[in-house]
Amino acid sequence: MTAQDPQIARAGRSLGEPIVLIEGVEKTFGDNHVLKNVSLTVRQGEVVVICGRSGSGKSTLLRCIDHLETIDGGTIRAAGHLMGMREKNGKRVPLKDSEVAKQQRDLGMVFQSFNLFPHISVIDNITLGPVRIQKRPKSEARDEARALLARVGLPDKENAYPRQLSGGQQQRVAIARALAMKPKVMLFDEPTSALDPEMISEVLDVMVDLSRQGMTMIVVTHEMGFARAAADRVILMHDGSIVEEADPETFFTAPKSEHTRLFLSKILHH
């Protein structure tokens, strides 16, 4: 089974309560208005694919959800947290560092450039969070890490250092590292863009598998095969706004926005 089997992936998944609620989010870098009144609701178990051309704000939106960037307006609720904020007598005050960190533990993020910790082994990369942050017993964390490594197809790499792995292997370790924290939502920012073509499917297969097991996922990607196979909804961002939001079938065959048609024609004929 590969990312190209659409029906199999989506079959039998039922969506739950909203778990990510983005309302009227604004983000600027200097005088560059990067996110403009962005609203989006993602339900538990849902897989949302975000695409759009370079600079349209996809990464920034993901980073705002995980509070790696602070937003300038609107609200983001994710995994039961009002991200980066606390409500106090009806007013919102920013949380301090350690409280933000606690919220972030419920969200997993996978980056285009993997960002594994190069100074420690694969298994230590995966257990660092559970052991040092969640203070779980080391032996338990290592057992779980081994199970995760098996799940991403790398059972024999626990003692390797990141630099000894291929890009596809590193990205699968990065996924295992994020999963080790038992996140409620997984965010992927172009997880396969830095990979050689022959390694893309090994990462996508892991992601499809994850979606089948009911993980809520927001995925920035231009892998349309993955979108067809695993997405419940596909979104197009253009110039800091969401301009199209549809199920994959409609997105690819009958998009409403001119931007989507243009985007699809570029991506399908290059």
Binding site: R63, D97, H119
Partner: peptide, 29 residues
């Protein structure tokens, strides 16, 4: 690398944990 800060924040490290577990050990090199 800046990505190390992103990755350690994404798994929920506080500033102090990030410094001790990720940034300083790599800066040591």
């Amino acid at each position: 690398d800046k990505g190390q800060t992103d990755a350690s924040r994404a798994i929920g490290m506080t500033w102090r944990q990030r410094m001790w577990l990720v940034i300083l050990p790599q800066a040591a090199r």
